[in-house]
């Protein structure tokens, strides 16, 4: 549906986008995930028409988008700041896009009423944006974006301005809405939890390039590059060389068990990644595992995070255990994991 083909954009010496290609399907909930300044917002602005790429093509259902001015694209953009018109009421804000299409007044009124109903703001139609809470403003922005029935809805950090509780509600709401209206959603976010919980597929961006496009579970369980392994979720990373067998040979710890995602020639630089919840805390007398001592225990209710200082490893090893942890600060432990639970990937360049 939306095809981004070899798009590049630089600002002076800074390369915001470097030959980015993506294909997003009809009705998909797609996320562009990356740290701030990685170029994802630039890509969004190019699709919306507020930025022009130096090279590349963008098509929507085969139609060239770049030749059209922003006000002639069948695309809605929900701004991070919401950009609600402060001098108009909620109803006027929502009606704005329909009025531009010169629809009959009766139809506008009806559609505005319907969409305000959908986002649960019927009672607030005559208020000004300044009289609404953050969550309500977000709903108005959303209503204003979807009322035009765009083929594509772009959302720039849609939940970042909300506090945690409201954010969880809105996440569910966004998902419900997306399946209800059947519009293709492309959301830009730096929050990987948000991307994971919302999106069908995620493209991970880093310094202007797409590192990996995958479904959330694959991205989490089978990161293809060190950047993705580190950026998406918490991970413990060990470097070494590919052993040819299951695992890597580390200078400090010898053989570490893991599963290579692709065929790796022995001796090649490689990285092993293992998720905190896949690591087992064992007694210090256990036969297998890396010896260390507990640095800190944080209790989060359902899970506890234990960080273990392993001599020879720069960062503490993070271990997640169910419920309350049985260890305390200073306890001598061993950390270990199964080969199938750790991922080995090549380190390029």
């Amino acid at each position: 549906m939306l095809r981004i083909d070899g798009v590049s954009r630089r600002f002076g010496d800074v390369i915001a986008l470097d030959d980015v290609s993506l294909e997003i399907g009809q009705g998909e909930f797609f996320a562009l995930l990356g740290p701030s300044g990685c170029g994802k917002t630039t890509l969004l602005r190019i699709v919306a028409g507020f930025e022009t790429p130096d090279a590349g093509k963008v098509t929507l259902d085969g139609e060239d988008l770049l030749s059209r001015p922003p006000n002639r694209r069948p695309i809605s953009l929900m701004f991070q700041s919401y950009a609600l018109f402060p001098h108009m009421t909620v109803a006027k804000n929502v009606a704005y896009g329909l009025e531009r299409e010169r629809l009959p007044r009766q139809e506008i009124k009806q559609r505005v009423g319907e969409v305000l109903e959908t986002v649960g703001l019927s009672a607030h139609a005559v208020r000004k944006p300044a009289q609404l809470s953050g969550g309500q403003r977000q709903r108005v922005a959303l209503a204003r974006s979807i009322v035009k029935r765009p083929r594509l809805l772009l959302l720039d950090e849609p939940l970042s301005a909300l506090d945690k509780k409201v954010r969880a509600d809105m996440q569910l709401e966004l998902k419900r809405l997306q399946s209800e209206v059947g519009i293709t959603f492309v959301v830009v976010t730096h929050d990987q939890e948000e991307a994971m919980s919302l999106a069908d597929r995620i493209a991970v961006f880093d310094s202007g390039s797409v590192r990996q496009v995958d479904e959330p579970i694959s991205l989490y369980e089978r990161p293809r590059s060190p950047f993705v392994a580190d950026f998406v979720g918490a991970n413990n990373l060990f470097s070494g060389t590919a052993s040819g067998l299951d695992g890597i040979r580390s200078e400090q710890f010898g053989m570490l068990p893991g599963t290579p995602l692709t065929e790796l020639t022995a001796g090649r630089q490689a990285l092993l990644a293992v998720r905190p919840e896949k690591i087992e805390l064992a007694d210090e007398n256990a036969t297998r595992g890396l010896a260390g001592s507990v640095l800190d225990v944080s209790f989060y209710g359902g899970v506890s995070h234990v960080s273990v200082d392993v001599p020879g490893h720069a960062k503490p090893v993070l271990v997640a255990v169910q419920g309350a942890a049985a260890v305390r600060q200073g306890t001598k432990v061993k950390v270990r994991w199964e080969a199938r639970d750790a991922v080995v990937m090549a380190v390029d360049q």
């Binding site: 507020f50 922003p70 809605s76 950009a83 704005y96 896009g97 531009r100």
Partner: peptide, 10 residues
């Protein structure tokens, strides 16, 4: 962004 929003809305 208000101008951009207006343009985006057609």
């Amino acid at each position: 962004q208000l101008r951009e929003a207006s343009s985006n809305l057609g």
